[in-house]
Design a protein around this nucleic acid. Structure first.
Lengths: 181, 181
DNA sequence: CGCAATTATCTTGACGTCAAGATATCTGGA
DNA sequence: TCCAGATATCTTGACGTCAAGATAATTGCG
């Protein structure tokens, strides 16, 4: 918490009103403008807030995963298998395509989940180079419970925005994302 | 929904006419709605896009840091020292307060930067428990060059949004961030 | 003044991730 | 058929991060 009070002593002392709405990112921008006034930092506020919001959201989400004995990494894999539908089986390559990590990372994630008894590696009858990763019954129970808690928590995390704001933010992020994907 | 194939790449990656306007996140939501229709996934789209956009932005920014022999971690520390103004010195605790990492992480970051000759640890004359981290002349040159390239790159990253959209997105992220800080 | 609580920084050990490369298998063209 | 290139997955080694706790110095209470 770095937050300042919106209606604290500062406003009673009539300190510049604009200062009151400055957040952590605004302070960083003000420092850059003082030290390197020739730099155009107009994009830094948006991208800095994006990074900070994402860091907070990630931390809050990990708490929920931890309650269910999972990490964001293991949740990610189990959730991908779960939402693919019965029989809850995908190849490592398919999991890779869905999760923005490298093949070595996916091997490691599967290793950990296999040790925990949440997935198993099955022979791929169509390609001896490959395997099929399957949710175990325990893995299915685990991800079903974790996913329910996760979506409830996600609603809590966005509750500070009005429905119309969420809609607007979602639309802008969709367009922004489209510039990368 | 038509029958799915045994091996899921087709279902995960499929593009058909009805889905041309759907992005990766929409496809994930559609899968959840099919598999767990009782879950309210209304917040997942926004938070999923936030995570993916941030991951893309982080990757693009790291390329620039790498061009200057830095990582996002080392850039973060050097930039904090640089924008604090002359004499470009802060305590590890002050760096910690500015950078959202743990003390052990900060110790490690400073160790790496010291090895690289970009910062040095000075005795803190006011508190023998502590030290002062100072940019070296080489560190100053490095961060000044990297910061200039970084802000230019940031402008490129947001160029796919119209100025009014950037403004709106920035405002919504500001409000969202305020719910955490 | 003396000592317990606090503070500042560092250490340790465990993870998760990545890049680069190894291994095994498949595939298509000659 | 054969084999060179492509493909699927795993291995290795180096990092960066964190949580928990250690160490040393400072502060403030009684």
């Amino acid at each position: 918490m770095t937050g300042r009070k919106r209606f604290g002593a500062a406003s009673l002392l009539r300190i510049d009103m604009e200062e009151l709405d400055k957040d952590h990112v605004d302070k960083i921008l003000a420092q850059w403008r003082r030290e390197r006034p020739e730099l155009d930092v107009s994009a830094m506020g948006l991208l800095g807030r994006l990074a900070r919001v994402r860091a907070h959201v990630a931390g809050e989400q990990e708490k929920i995963f931890s309650d269910h004995g999972l990490t964001s990494a293991s949740f990610d894999v189990l959730a991908t298998l779960r939402r693919s539908g019965p029989p809850f089986q995908l190849s490592p390559g398919e999991l890779l395509a869905a999760t923005m990590v490298t093949s070595g990372t996916m091997t490691n994630r599967i290793d950990q989940l296999e040790k925990a008894g949440l997935v198993e590696r099955l022979d791929n009858p169509e390609d001896r180079r490959g395997v099929i990763i399957a949710l175990t019954p325990e893995g299915l129970k685990r991800i079903d419970a974790a996913a329910a808690a996760h979506v409830t928590n996600q609603q809590r995390l966005v509750a500070g925005l009005e429905p119309a704001e969420r809609e607007a933010l979602n639309g802008l992020l969709r367009k922004f994302l489209a510039t990368f994907e």
